[in-house]
C-alpha cells in the first residue's frame, strides 16, 4: 500500500532541523516557510532563502495586497490556500531597468488588463516583466516567491532560523 504524500500548511506542518555533529546550525539557515508565514503580517516578503542577490521569500497571503511590479520576471508558487492574481500590462514601466526586486506601486496601475489567475496549492504563476500584479486571498495562504533582493525584502534570519 502506498504511503500517503505529506504536505505542509499553515494549519498543519511538522518541522525537522539540523542535527549537528561538527558544525554550527546557523550555517544552514534552517527555517520552515509555513512557520514563517504563520508569524508574518499579510504580504510581508520575508526572506527564507538568499544567494547573493537572489532571494526566495515566504509571503502570507491574506486579504488584498498592494499592486507590485518589477523590472524582471518574478514567480509565485502557492504552497497553501487559494490566491487570486490580477495582472495589468503597464503603459509605462514603473520600475527602473536597474531596479532589482519587487517595487510597490502607489495606487492603481495604468494599463490594460491582462487577466487573472486563481492559483491553489502547488500552482506556480509567472509575473512577467513589465506587468503590475496584485494578490487576493479570502483566507490565509502561503506563497513562495522567486525574485531578486529588493527594497521590500525583509531579512529577519535571527528570528526565523534554527540557532
Amino acid at each position: 500500500m502506498a504511503v500517503p504524500t505529506k504536505l505542509g500548511s499553515l494549519a498543519d506542518f511538522a518541522k525537522g532541523g539540523v542535527e549537528v555533529i561538527d558544525d554550527d546550525p546557523r550555517h544552514y539557515a534552517f527555517s520552515n516557510i509555513f512557520e514563517v508565514a504563520a508569524k508574518s503580517r499579510p504580504y510581508e516578503k520575508v526572506c527564507v532563502g538568499k544567494n547573493i542577490k537572489n532571494v526566495l521569500e515566504a509571503i502570507r497571503a491574506e486579504g488584498t495586497s498592494p499592486w507590485y511590479t518589477a523590472s524582471h520576471d518574478e514567480a509565485a508558487l502557492v504552497m497553501d490556500g487559494e490566491v487570486e492574481i490580477h495582472l495589468v500590462k503597464l503603459d509605462q514601466p514603473a520600475a527602473r531597468e536597474d531596479q532589482e526586486g519587487t517595487t510597490m506601486l502607489e495606487g492603481q496601475p495604468t494599463g490594460r488588463k491582462m487577466g487573472r489567475i486563481v492559483a491553489r496549492r502547488g500552482h506556480m504563476a509567472l509575473l512577467p516583466k513589465g506587468s503590475a500584479y496584485r494578490f487576493y486571498a479570502d483566507k490565509p495562504g502561503v506563497i513562495l516567491f522567486q525574485t531578486l533582493l529588493g527594497p521590500l525584502t525583509i531579512e529577519r534570519w535571527g528570528e526565523i532560523c534554527q540557532r
Binding site: T5, K6, L7, G8, F13, A14, K15, G16, G17, V18, E19, V20, I21, D22, D23, P25, H27, Y28, A29, F30, S31, N32, I33, F34, E35, V48, G49, L56, M79
Partner: peptide, 30 residues
Amino acid sequence: LSDQIDWLVYDGKTGKPRARVVAKAGDICA
C-alpha cells in the same frame, strides 16, 4: 515540498561528518 529527506553532510575537504539535516514539508535550508 513534500514528505521527508534526511541530508547527510560531510566536510568538503576531509569527508568527515558535519551534520544530519532533517527536512520535512515546508522546511528550507542552505
